[in-house]
Design a protein around this nucleic acid. Sequence first.
RNA 1: GCCCCGAUAGCUCAACUGGAUAGAGCAGCGGUCUUCUAAACCGCAGGUUGCAGGUUCGAGUCCUGCUCGGGGUACCA
Length: 651
Amino acid sequence: MILTLLKSRFADALSGIADDPAQLLDMIKSSQDPKFGDYQANCAMPLGKKLGQPPRDIAAQIVERLDVADFCEPPEVAGPGFINLKLKEEWLTEQVNGILVDDRLGVTPVSEPKHVVVDYSSPNVAKPMHVGHLRSSVIGDAICRILRFAGHKVTSDNHIGDWGTQFGMIIYGYKHFVDQAGYEEDPVGELARLYRLVNQLSDYHAAVNSLPDLEQKLSAAQQALTTAEAGGEPKDKSEKKQRKALRKSVSGLEQQVGSTRKIMEAVRSSPVVSSAADEHPDIARLARLETSKLHAGDKENLKLWNEFLPACLSALQSVYDRLDVSFDLTLGESYYNPMLADVVSSLQEKGLARESDGAQCVFVEGNDAPFIIQKSDGAFTYATTDLATIQYRVKELGADEILYVVDKRQSEHFNLLFQTCQLWGFEDLKCQHVSFGTVMGDDNKPFKTRSGDNVGLESLIDEAVSRAAEIVAENDDKRPEPWLDADARAAVSEVVGSGGIKYADLHHNRDSDYKFSWDKMLATNGDSATYMQYAFARICGIFRRAETTRAFVREAGAAVRISTPQERALVLQLLSLGEAIQTALTDYRPNILCDWLLSTAERYSQFFDKCPVLKADSEELKASRLSLCELTARALELGLRLLGIKTAEVL
RNA sequence: GCCCCGAUAGCUCAACUGGAUAGAGCAGCGGUCUUCUAAACCGCAGGUUGCAGGUUCGAGUCCUGCUCGGGGUACCA
């Protein structure tokens, strides 16, 4: 890696000037602007400050001692003390020719591989996956792929919710409302219907119970607000704040009352549902009871659970197949059930857990809320399961590090979990909550259908693929003679559609919320999956035109020669994959790799525009450019594959 | 109340964890196809990085206060 080489030379140059060069070496990076060269070292400024000398003098001293003449032009000192480095073209040529037949594009595996367990996707199996599971699945899968490529041992684990309250709900639903014919025809669809129904009915009764109280609170708040707005000093700061808080609580209550009424109306508007509601007034408690019966080993419920689970799992699997997302393990909550009691007693023995309001809690310094590991009714919580899971992953799997690719709203839970885990004795384990933001709709609220339901993941994929199909067809129809038959169009649509979904998610910084947009997702230009897939397909087109194959060109191994700025820029880009991967992994941000791919595709498009391959000036140049094309194709293919995105030879 | 997170071009988002003149893509305007896929390329225009201070050679990035928005906050996961 170029950066590694530079760092080692700078380490030599800095020894004797600085006592702790590690931090300074991190200040060497690729230049943002080509006019500053290819790489820049920013370490002279902090060093100058530390030594009390002008940074430019320090920079000059470093340059004096720096031995990079074998691969760089003479370094230049600029501005306050930046050291700008430009790589020699002969050296770049040598480097690129060194990776012509390398599947890894010169990226060497890490010297100290870790065993990383990656926990992602983790849906509740009782209900169909929705758009909320997309980010976790796609980001988690990409991180696994990148980690593996970097040389780490990865265990991907789908920590499915297969043991919680939602199972009590479908068991209750099955016992009272099942449509046997529907269940036999489509078990998962019927179970999902039952889940929604039971959920709706318990929400209904909760709504009926809470409405009077809510209305009372609302009118009290409204009254308080009116009083506050009428009297008092308009400019008084604390009163202003108070009014603001009141307004907020009024609008919050209004919303609550509104949604509560909506829940009631929805039930009342359907005679069937309405009478079901009347016949099952205690449904919420009874559904919970089914859950605890299941946990206690009740024969009938366990039998139903064993019957439901395979069907639910296979429904999940079909979505994962479609997304090309896979797992080494699928160990759900039920797997850890037998270990939970020991977790609690172990924490009690160590004096970490104690009783509070009837529940077993771990209190972690600096946190008001306790970490509840056993509820007052004796049931365990997901905190308990998560602790048992950590224990299992360390002791049985030998994990060095665990990543949780989970919604950022759960950060407090993970804070408590990780701190408890430290106290419990897993000091050497590194845990990280790889958090991500919410997928928003046009209204800047979480992405929902018009009726307010979650968007099903399967229908989302279907929609993406069918929109992609239109684009593919439209584009192919523009040609004098279409290139694609119906089967090929369908295959390409799948690649473009699912690639679009994934890239749209991955190219955002995972921590930010992003607004869902079909148009952006399936944009055929700009920062989109299609842009890169298109660059790849154009390369394949050249090989077809040349009546040769990528394998043949690769085998021939003609040397790359740099003859234009476009070729230089492309070569430099291709040599920087290792850096992109390293940066992407420092904080598990796949968007860094997206940037690298975009930049690679851009530079290829520029090359494609300015540098004829088949009509190059000489046979030698043609061979050189064919080699460069083959290498770029491999780079795009590899980079996209690390994100879980496929390519097609013809678009 | 307390605790987190965010506010960057008209829109959607970046910004390699403190580096040079804050970048892309859309949308807008203008150029480039008898030549390897125009799903492309090139150019123009677009900014007081929410506000006010502070830290330093240097701040979108760190600190303090404020405004606005989002999320969380004891037995759902």
